Simulated assay, not measured.
Amino acid sequence: MTLNCVIIDDEPLAAELLASYAKKIPFIELQGCFNSATEAIKTIREKKIDLIFLDIQMPEISGLEFARIIGEETRIVFTTAFSQYAIEGYKVNALDYLLKPISFEKFLEVAKKALDYFETKNKSLTMKQDRFIFVKSEYKLQKVCFDDILYIEGVKDYVKFYIADGSKNIMSLMNMKKVEEFLPYPEFMRIHRSYIVHMPKVSLIDRFRIVMGEQYLPISESYKDNVQKYIEEHTLF
């Protein structure tokens, strides 16, 4: 897999340095190197840009402002001489940030992080389209069809898949966050740090608890708004 990339920095020497780094990395395809965000707009619109290395302090429009108008398909890595901008960067969903002066080692580390992100994203899309996954359980690979899942429970370092047809439930060593990434939302919804529920399988909600057979699954405050919105969208008043 290769990533289409652009570099935007109003300091020509800084931009050229990052461009030289990008050209050394086989999975990075550098589509342009620009000294302002406005110069880069045409390339970003015409080509499918996966990754932007974006300076924060620039004339005309800052990197933070520019990041807010970029589509979600494109990920941002901020480059800055000021560490206090890191928090602002994460507010606009930046993949990461690099603190100047930037070494090739640090640049490569972030580039690999971007590659991992896009490979995981593509894998997730494939699984969502195929509507099944394989999970490791009892030294075997067990196929789990999305349509068969009632809900998923996090149990310490394991997750437990509860299956609708009454067959044996499946326990696998993995974390809830990883499972959540590969399941289609909002069909599968996190309702609690310990539970992901297959919402079309829900037949009863009692006092803001989801009832699955004899099990009452609590909806925690952290996920209450998302669940409430889903319920309202599927409720006749």
Rank of each mutant, 00 (worst) to 15 (best):
L3N: 00
L3G: 06
N4T: 06
N4L: 09
V6G: 06
I7W: 14
I8C: 05
E11G: 05
P12V: 02
P12G: 06
L17T: 01
L18I: 05
A19P: 03
I25R: 00
F27D: 07
G32T: 07
E39P: 07
A40Y: 00
R45N: 10
D50M: 08
L54Y: 00
I56Y: 07
I56G: 04
G63Q: 06
L64H: 04
R68S: 01
G71M: 05
E73D: 09
R75T: 00
T79I: 06
A81Q: 03
A86I: 04
I87Y: 12
G89M: 08
G89S: 04
L95H: 01
D96S: 12
L99E: 05
K100I: 00
P101D: 09
I102T: 03
I102E: 05
I102V: 12
F107W: 05
L108P: 06
V110F: 02
A111G: 05
A111C: 08
A111R: 07
K112T: 00
K113F: 09
K113I: 06
A114E: 05
D116E: 11
Y117C: 09
E119A: 14
K121G: 08
K123M: 14
K123N: 15
L125Y: 15
T126K: 15
K128F: 14
F132K: 15
F132P: 15
Y139E: 14
Y139L: 15
K140D: 03
K140H: 08
K143W: 12
V144T: 11
I149Q: 15
I152G: 10
I152Q: 14
K156F: 09
K156P: 01
D157V: 11
V159I: 13
F161T: 00
A164K: 14
N169C: 08
N169W: 09
N169G: 08
L173D: 04
L173E: 06
L173C: 11
M174P: 05
M174H: 01
K178E: 14
K178C: 09
K178A: 13
E180S: 01
F182R: 13
L183N: 00
P184T: 02
P186T: 00
Y195M: 10
Y195C: 04
I196R: 08
H198S: 10
S203Q: 07
S203Y: 08
L204C: 07
R207G: 01
R209N: 13
V211P: 06
L217R: 04
P218R: 12
I219G: 04
S220Y: 08
D225M: 11
V227E: 05
Q228H: 14
Y230P: 02
I231D: 03
E233Y: 03
E233T: 04
